Computed example of a mutant assay.
Amino acid sequence: MKFCRKCRSVLTEGEDGWVCDGCGWELERASDEPTEPSQEASGRSSRGSGTALESLPTTDSGSIRKAKALEWLHGLEPPTDEELRRSVTAKPKGFTGSTFASDVSNVRVTGDAEFVEAFAGLLEPLLDLEGERTRLELNLQRTEDRDSGEFTDNYALYLSVAER
């Protein structure tokens, strides 16, 4: 996977060169090559992009203490729609296996209908990522009680972006 030098989004190879999925920047074949993940990190990965999140101290198990996490949350500014879209790392075409330990961006929201619907409204800018180069993987379903097998009044929303 290659990343844009300007916004760190995934680049897609086209007939005339590389095109950024995030900002639309085009890189002609004759000019500089795009960055490889091993050379320069995506702005969304754990490879040292310089985010406030990466500077938080962790326990031996990798957890961030609640007080520090709350302090971090209170210090965040809401992203613009463009910043949110640009921060997404799409699942590479042909990817198999778990995305949990990868830098692929996933959203999982569970709860009652009111909460899931309210939270889902925050994700509207991501709908613009459905296009020729990437697609939305969306799963919205009622949850099932494991013991009885009956549907509950709760819902689960899973959202990610995948390369076409």
Rank of each mutant, 00 (worst) to 15 (best):
R142K: 13
L56R: 02
E36L: 09
P79V: 15
T35G: 11
E54C: 04
E13A: 09
S55L: 13
V10K: 06
G22T: 08
L70V: 06
E137T: 04
G17C: 03
D16S: 15
E117H: 06
G111I: 05
N154P: 07
H74K: 09
N139Y: 09
V19Q: 03
G50V: 01
S9E: 07
D128T: 08
A67G: 02
L84G: 03
G62H: 00
E83A: 15
E28C: 06
S49D: 08
N139G: 10
G111P: 09
K68C: 08
V107K: 01
A101P: 00
R146A: 14
V88K: 08
A67S: 10
R142S: 10
L157N: 03
L127K: 15
F100H: 10
E71L: 07
A156G: 14
Y158D: 14
P125N: 01
L126Q: 05
W72I: 00
R5M: 08
D16H: 14
F115Y: 13
D112G: 13
N154D: 14
S9G: 05
T51N: 07
V104S: 06
S148I: 11
P34Q: 07
T51E: 04
G48Q: 05
T59P: 00
G17N: 04
L123C: 02
S49M: 06
D32S: 14
D128W: 05
P78F: 01
V116Y: 08
A120E: 10
P34A: 09
S105T: 12
L11R: 08
N106C: 14
L127Y: 15
G75E: 05
A120S: 14
T59D: 14
S45C: 13
F119C: 08
C4M: 03
E82H: 07
A162Y: 05
D81W: 06
R65I: 08
L123N: 03
P37I: 02
C23N: 02
S55A: 15
S31G: 12
S87L: 11
R29Q: 06
A162W: 00
L129S: 04
T96P: 09
Q39L: 10
C20H: 04
T96I: 07
L84Y: 02
L129E: 01
T58M: 03
E163H: 03
A101G: 06
R108N: 11
R146W: 07
Q39D: 15
F115W: 11
G94A: 03
L27Q: 10
T96S: 14
S160E: 05
G97V: 07
G75I: 01
E150V: 00
D128L: 01
